[in-house]
Design a binder for these strands. Structure first.
Length: 313
DNA sequence: AGCCAGGCTTGGT
DNA sequence: ACCAAGCATGGC
């Protein structure tokens, strides 16, 4: 197969913008109608068309399996929606964001990102991850050397007349493990630094195996991830859902807790444990997708509320 | 200025 | 089993 640096991936019911901006990934940025990001060592530029998702890479590639995998364009998405519970909150949440999808991330990048996520706003997680990648990640070429010379320059933060910022691969466990805690703290991750460093060292020296997680069932995989410092139930569920494809994983953070409380238990206050138990049975085999819809629904509802509040002032 | 953020760990009942 | 403090930093 010949080398290519662009492709159209057919996709229906796919809201690319909402998906890349929904708090599952932290390195994608919208630049003039395009979404710029990095998948593995590929610098990628995506845009949504009527037919699907058009992708361009800075470096030519032999195939596109890695991108189909990341974007999950080939799943039976209508079947996922069909399995959602038929109740008013879910109808509202789905209507609020048609085509919101789950991506399939690299486990290490996902784990590291969510170790850094605790008690942080999404904008801040993005900043920390960006610093981490700039400090410790491998710099990646922004333009194709061969194909269509000069036609494409992919980079985050391009403004007219300005060179695009360099892009970086997400740092490997080895690269993080070689850092000091002070160097990590310089990325503004605060008390999360020792947790990230410990995870990186365990993975780098082989005492913790991210690949073997795939062989386990959900409960065992969750327990295994929770052995890592700084990884509790919520972060474990995020990694299981976003990186390993455990569709039953149901991360409960503040937003989702509020969603469950307000939408399903409006009268009485339900304990965190009660909410988790309810979620485990109520949302079916694709509970993780349902969770993402509830999360996005609550978050955007709040954002528009604050925006309108601001304009009124 | 002060509250709170895609939480977890530890130490108290 | 449940509750609270403490953690580091910055957006709003």
């Amino acid at each position: 197969m010949s080398l290519e640096n662009e492709i159209l991936l057919p996709a229906r019911d796919y809201n690319l913008a909402a998906t890349l901006d929904s708090g599952q990934v932290f390195r994608w940025r919208a630049v003039g109608g395009f979404w710029h990001g990095v998948v593995g060592k590929q610098v990628v530029r995506l845009t949504q068309t009527a037919a699907g998702i058009h992708a361009e890479t800075a470096a030519p590639v032999e195939h596109w399996d890695w991108l189909r995998q990341f974007l999950q364009t080939e799943i039976d998405f209508p079947a996922v929606l069909k399995m959602f519970p038929d109740d008013e909150p879910m109808r509202q949440a789905v209507a609020a964001c048609r085509g919101l999808r789950l991506l399939r991330q690299d486990p290490w990048e996902c784990l590291a990102s969510f170790i850094l996520s605790s008690t942080k706003q999404i904008v801040q997680i993005r900043q920390i991850v960006a610093r981490l990648c700039e400090q410790f990640g491998e710099p990646l070429p922004l333009r194709s050397a061969g194909l269509r010379p000069g036609s494409l320059e992919i980079g985050v933060g391009i403004t007219p007349g300005q060179r695009p910022a360099l892009q970086y691969a997400f740092p490997t466990p080895q690269q993080i493990a070689a850092a000091s805690e002070a160097e990590l703290r310089a990325c503004k991750m605060g008390f999360r630094a020792p947790s990230l460093l410990a995870a990186a060292r365990q993975i780098a020296d082989g005492s913790f195996d991210l690949e073997s997680i795939r062989q386990l069932d959900y409960a065992a995989a969750r327990a295994e991830l929770m052995k890592l410092r700084g990884v509790g139930g919520k972060i474990a569920d995020c990694v299981l859902l976003f990186a390993y494809g455990f569709d039953g994983a149901f991360p409960v953070d503040g937003w989702v807790e509020r969603a469950l409380q307000e939408l399903y238990f409006p009268r009485r206050r339900a304990s965190d444990k009660r909410l988790r138990k309810f979620a485990a049975t109520h949302f079916g085999p694709h509970a993780g997708y349902a969770q993402q819809y509830l999360f996005h629904y609550m978050r955007t509802r709040n954002l528009t509320a604050t925006a309108s509040r601001r304009t009124r002032l």
